[in-house]
Amino acid sequence: MQLLEKNEKYEQYYLAALPVVTTYIFELKKQWKKFVIFTIMAISFVILLSHLPYALIPDNPLPDTQADYFQSGLNFIILLTIFGACFFFSGIICSEYSEKTGFITFPIINKYKLVVGKYLGALTLMIGVIAAFYIALGVLGIYWYGGPINYRYYYSFGIALLYLIAVSSFVTFFSSFMKSVNMTIVTTIMLLLIANMIIDSLVILLYPEFEPIYSLNHNSQLISYILVEDFPTKLEDRYEDLEFRNFHRRIWLTPTIEGAITIFLLYTVICLIVAAIIFKRRQL
């Protein structure tokens, strides 16, 4: 009797998870080509920016330490994450409406399960792209400096993943109410690259002492700055003040570790909750 109940319960879980799992696998297959393109791009950029300049130009000195080498190599990761997230996640919700696909063909299925499956599938692929970038840079780090890899490099990878999840949630939020995939891609790229930067600059200009803790751009600096051996613990070590004639400007070098993680998590939770609410109310 107990075994029967256990089996029934197992079957219930299985049935509940089935649309998520099948959608997840389908998403992996669906976005496979995109994954290959982005992975090739990621590895190519690592070679182009972190290997060829040192291999081909003899006078170009290598950074002093492996950590410094990684730090300079990781500058491209922000751009890669933003573009990747926009391309992988922009269609998660809006394409189902604009292209009349899954929700239309079997609408009685819990739509959230389809979205969760799609989100996890796209996230897995993007994690793969980011991982390929880190592996390529790591291999080159060993090639130039010898092993082992600086342990802080793994922290950086962890922070990069949190940043990826926050950015992908931000894009998913836009996908929940935008009409088309292309519009979502353009809007989110504009917001994440240009608008964010403009807002940060304005805030810094108006309130020079204020740290833009709300900003994904500002917090993303932690991905490379965490590699600094003496990571600043005091506030005054986290910025540099620039004075030019009467003009004063503060440049923030890094957020705090706790602060950045909290902001990434907040972005993720808020964007996904709002996306879920909009999605629930969205009608065809």
Binding site: F26, K30, E99, T105
Partner: peptide, 16 residues
């Protein structure tokens, strides 16, 4: 509920 089958509008499907 019993199983439903739907054909609504013209589905475009995925690129698969």
């Amino acid at each position: 509920l019993v199983r439903f089958g739907f054909l609504i509008d013209q589905p475009f499907f995925y690129d698969m």
